[in-house]
Write a protein that binds this DNA or RNA. Sequence first.
DNA 1: CCAGTCTGTATATGCCGTACACCGAGTACT
DNA 2: AGTACTCGGTGTACGGCATATACAGACTGG
Lengths: 268, 268
Amino acid sequence: MLWRKEEPEPRPGLSVGRIVRAAIELADAEGLEGLSMRKVADRLGFTTMSLYRHVPGRDQLVDLMRDEVMGEHPELPPEREGWRARLEAIARQAWEIRRRHPWLAEVRGTRHLPGPHGVAHYDAMLATLTGTALRPSEVVAAIGLLGRFVDAEALVLVETRREEQRSGVSEQEWWGARDSLYERLDQYPALSHLWESGAWDAPEDSFEFGLRRLLDGIEALIQERDETRDETCQECGKPLEPTAPSGRPRVYCSRACQQRAYRKRKDG
Amino acid sequence: MLWRKEEPEPRPGLSVGRIVRAAIELADAEGLEGLSMRKVADRLGFTTMSLYRHVPGRDQLVDLMRDEVMGEHPELPPEREGWRARLEAIARQAWEIRRRHPWLAEVRGTRHLPGPHGVAHYDAMLATLTGTALRPSEVVAAIGLLGRFVDAEALVLVETRREEQRSGVSEQEWWGARDSLYERLDQYPALSHLWESGAWDAPEDSFEFGLRRLLDGIEALIQERDETRDETCQECGKPLEPTAPSGRPRVYCSRACQQRAYRKRKDG
DNA sequence: CCAGTCTGTATATGCCGTACACCGAGTACT
DNA sequence: AGTACTCGGTGTACGGCATATACAGACTGG
């Protein structure tokens, strides 16, 4: 269903596409909490239960919404020099989508079948690091880490925004009004020292800061791996031909070795 | 209320402490979603509404629970050499608490008044970096980043665990059974290359991996700042006395300058 | 004795997702 | 032409949630 093709000639009445789009509008305005089958149906002028003729349930609707908005940036950012610039560009793209659709970061659960746009995104991120000296499992771990970082930052952003607009009080004002906190501050040396140093007067942009730290951390590992790059076949131990710059790192010396390793993994 | 003292002689009937403890047991077993006022009350043998005589509402109850469990590790990890070892130790402690009380990572919202244990933890984390060349705002940003990282990792952990025990199918099995995914794999070059390289056969431990990356990233910034360390008073520009190793970095040359800067910030 | 406070209770409102029974219109087949 | 069947939309209902409100008994201070 996620990989469905949009019906070419739109017929009157409900359709998956229309439901998904209405749901996205609603979630953009009210957040994932505010997304209910009743409200989606109202917005479309149908009864609640009519939606269930097209969509199995709320959870699957959210899956559809996710993949839909991930397709809003079909063009990947332009090719750039080096893994770092490329990865940074894609991370910013993901960040941009979450700024436009804050509810995206609020979706929970680990067993979401990815749709076409989601996989494409994931593949593009993985591609940025496959040319490096990182081991395959490290590529996957690094991309996962970066993805969770973007989601986590987006989550606090949407939460502060939502609480601000709900209460009409800005985050700064709210914390400023909590006098009781500052009375006890003296008991906490690091906290009060930083407070007096003005650490909270001009805070860092937390996405920019975190992104740089993460990329630095990944870069450190790449350098480490570069120094001890393994130049022998993972299967038979023979020396490998040198990898072309910015090409995939070679792991096996021949197709035969690759297939032997693949069968090994598959069987055991 | 968060800073309340436990009543010395326990009286029969309900009390904040008893409610909080019952709620923690419940959330440990069923997650934050499964925590409802009804169930807490049932567990204690009272009616739902009786709880509201002691606790303002569900949200505040969760705040109380948070601070309660943060107090389970009152002894901070032993003093270690260097900011990195100390910060790592505290991060692991936070991780440990979230493994014991997975719902902790599920708590959403940015305006939680911190309780005594929460502030103590935060102060301890900040303290690890105040001896470094980082600027105050960078210390705060780095600690925030690390905190969100721990929460994000804990969140996916609890989500997979919960889905596994709910469905009885392990995460690996579940993804393995999604044949439809692997059919399309060929269209995604990086993904299929990594798949064939066995990147998912022996995945990295995502907490360990991420923690190292983050600490490396922070270390990179510290080195950068170390090289260009500012050795003049932030207020009057006079040269500073050298900072004692592992002491707080000096920012002002005298108490007078510090107070002048403080008043400036406060007024404008 | 009585007013007031403190605790626990009972009932009710308004959300939510969705199971189930129904119904009219079209459609495919005999 | 008649009939069975499917499709899309409807209406009602259930069980779960947080919590507002009104109330009832017990204890306490004057």
